[in-house]
Amino acid sequence: MPSEHYIGGFHAVLAALEDGRHKPFEVLLSDSRNDERSRRVRALAQSLSVAVRTVARSDLDLKAPGLRHQGVLALMPQVELAGEDVLLAPADEGRLFLALDGVQDPHNLGACLRTAEAAGVSAVIVPRDRAAGLTAVARKVAAGSAERVPVASVTNLSRTLAKLKDAGYWLTGLDGDGVETIYDVDLRGPVVLVMGAEGEGMRRLTRENCDRVVRIPMLGKVESLNVSAAAAVCLFEALRQRLGATRG
């Protein structure tokens, strides 16, 4: 496994500088940019004693092929994803986890992370194998949220969910054939929202661990939503209920 990697895009790089758990080794800026955002990145990096180099845009393309880097890259230390230890805090009323059962597309993972941060999720749970990792693409789509939301990589998702259930969490899975809708169930308190993979949904063992399986009501001819869109619907319904509880 490489000891370092690049992330790109202004949101991701600024997040790594401002409040990321690990600071960049250096920041690379395209010589074709001299706007407010690039100046902000340069000033912030220099204030943190992070080296800044100006390079040709073609150099950025070579270092991060296929990544829409917007003219900025940051060289980051390779850090392992969090383990199950981030899930061990007591199952109090404010804890909300998002579990992704084998999401393969890094764009979807990044979008889920961005929504998770906005909805106040405590951690995102992903299986270690056969799932998208925190690649440069996922981090860019996450727009900085990958630096702020813990991502717990677990060896066996169904076993982890069973432990959380025993610890007092309510496991709510999403599937198109759920009897109840996401709007019919109580999503306050310690909850794990479980989303399945693109096209396949939750695996059998994952589904069996859920206390309840719900669906998003759909009108028209659309059969299902993209996993990141579905996660947004469910997470913000949970947030709506939680805000109502705190205000009531």
Results as ranks from 00 to 15, higher is better:
residue 244 G to C: 08
residue 8 G to Y: 07
residue 230 A to R: 02
residue 165 K to I: 09
residue 64 A to R: 09
residue 138 A to R: 03
residue 148 R to C: 10
residue 94 G to D: 13
residue 180 E to D: 12
residue 158 S to I: 10
residue 89 A to F: 14
residue 10 F to G: 02
residue 221 K to E: 09
residue 116 A to L: 14
residue 63 K to A: 03
residue 104 Q to D: 13
residue 42 R to T: 00
residue 56 A to T: 06
residue 92 D to T: 14
residue 194 V to T: 15
residue 23 K to Q: 13
residue 129 D to L: 10
residue 49 S to H: 12
residue 116 A to G: 06
residue 194 V to A: 06
residue 226 N to F: 04
residue 214 V to A: 11
residue 82 A to N: 08
residue 241 Q to C: 09
residue 202 M to C: 10
residue 218 M to W: 10
residue 107 H to Q: 14
residue 182 I to R: 02
residue 19 D to V: 00
residue 207 R to T: 03
residue 114 R to T: 08
residue 131 A to K: 02
residue 152 A to N: 07
residue 187 L to K: 12
residue 188 R to K: 10
residue 10 F to Y: 15
residue 112 C to A: 04
residue 167 A to L: 09
residue 55 V to S: 06
residue 9 G to V: 12
residue 120 G to R: 01
residue 155 T to R: 11
residue 125 I to Y: 00
residue 63 K to T: 03
residue 13 V to S: 00
residue 238 A to Q: 07
residue 222 V to I: 15
residue 154 V to E: 05
residue 178 G to D: 04
residue 165 K to A: 11
residue 16 A to D: 01
residue 49 S to M: 01
residue 229 A to M: 03
residue 44 L to S: 00
residue 79 V to E: 09
residue 151 V to A: 01
residue 101 D to H: 08
residue 135 T to R: 02
residue 237 E to A: 00
residue 178 G to L: 09
residue 149 V to A: 03
residue 51 A to H: 00
residue 15 A to W: 00
residue 113 L to P: 14
residue 33 R to L: 06
residue 244 G to R: 07
residue 16 A to V: 02
residue 20 G to L: 01
residue 172 T to N: 06
residue 38 S to V: 00
residue 45 A to N: 01
residue 222 V to A: 13
residue 61 D to Q: 06
residue 136 A to C: 05
residue 118 A to E: 03
residue 142 A to R: 05
residue 124 V to Q: 01
residue 202 M to K: 09
residue 23 K to I: 10
residue 23 K to M: 08
residue 148 R to H: 01
residue 200 E to C: 10
residue 147 E to L: 00
residue 58 S to C: 14
residue 70 Q to G: 07
residue 231 A to V: 05
residue 113 L to I: 15
residue 154 V to D: 05
residue 76 M to L: 13
residue 215 R to Q: 09
residue 135 T to Q: 07
residue 121 V to P: 10
residue 153 S to T: 08
residue 143 A to M: 05
residue 99 A to Y: 09
residue 104 Q to F: 13
residue 160 T to R: 06
residue 84 E to A: 15
residue 195 M to W: 14
residue 143 A to W: 04
residue 75 L to T: 15
residue 237 E to H: 05
residue 161 L to G: 05
residue 62 L to P: 11
residue 180 E to F: 05
residue 47 S to C: 10
residue 154 V to W: 01
residue 117 E to Y: 06
residue 141 V to A: 09
residue 101 D to F: 01
residue 59 D to F: 05
residue 17 L to W: 02
residue 67 L to I: 01
residue 67 L to Q: 08
residue 247 R to W: 13
